Simulated scan of single mutants.
Amino acid sequence: MSIELDKPDRQQAIESIQRYFSENMEAPIGNMTAGALLNFFLEEVGPSIYNKAVADARARMQARLDDLEFEVQEDVFTYWRKFDKARGKKGQG
């Protein structure tokens, strides 16, 4: 699965790369070179970041599911306990 950015995000990323080079490197970087560098990082590093994000989302969802089981758990076989309690009797099971 390739990671792609929509056009506005891609343009903003390229501009950010160009600014980074302008402020931190000895030579500025052109639009095409910044785009090629972005493509490299999306292809080379992007899948690792994506996989980590999916794993984090999965863990968070699993935690929510675990909470859900606790929150919606209902006691079973309670009819007779309620009935016996209403009549002042001790339940038999």
Results as ranks from 00 to 15, higher is better:
R19M: 08
Q11M: 10
M25Q: 10
N51L: 12
N51V: 11
D66Y: 03
S48I: 00
S22T: 11
R58W: 07
V45T: 10
I3T: 08
A55T: 14
R58L: 07
I14L: 03
M32E: 15
Y50E: 15
Q12Y: 03
A86N: 03
L38W: 06
A55N: 12
F41I: 02
F40C: 06
D56K: 13
S2Q: 15
L37S: 01
Q73S: 14
K82E: 03
N31A: 10
K82M: 04
G91L: 00
A59G: 04
D84N: 02
P8F: 05
K52S: 13
L65K: 12
T33K: 10
E44H: 07
V54H: 02
T33F: 06
Q12W: 02
T78C: 00
L5P: 08
F41K: 10
V45P: 01
R87M: 00
D67S: 09
S22H: 14
Q18A: 00
E71N: 08
P47M: 09
S16N: 08
F41S: 06
N51E: 15
E43V: 12
R19N: 10
G35P: 02
Y50M: 13
F83Q: 01
A53Q: 15
N31K: 15
E43N: 13
G35L: 06
L42G: 04
Q62C: 03
E69P: 04
W80Y: 03
E44W: 05
I3K: 13
A36Q: 15
E44Q: 07
E26Y: 04
I14P: 01
R81M: 01
S2Y: 12
R64M: 12
S22C: 09
D6Q: 14
M61I: 13
R58V: 05
P28G: 10
E44T: 07
A63W: 04
F40M: 11
D67T: 05
R87G: 00
N24K: 09
F21L: 03
F83R: 01
M32Y: 10
M32H: 11
A63M: 07
M32T: 14
V72C: 05
N31C: 08
L38F: 09
A53F: 13
Q11P: 02
E71S: 04
L5Q: 07
R81E: 02
N51K: 15
G93Y: 00
L65R: 11
Q12D: 08
R10F: 06
L65V: 09
G35W: 06
K85T: 12
E71R: 08
K85E: 03
Q62G: 02
P28C: 09
S2V: 13
K7D: 15
N24W: 02
E26S: 11
M61K: 14
V76P: 00
E69F: 09
E44A: 05
A59V: 08
G46W: 11
L68C: 08
S22I: 07
N39L: 06
M1Q: 14
N24R: 05
E26W: 03
E69V: 14
A13V: 01
S48P: 01
A63P: 00
A57V: 09
E71P: 00
L38S: 04
P8D: 12
L68T: 04
E74K: 13
D66I: 03
R64K: 11
D9G: 09
D6V: 14
L5V: 10
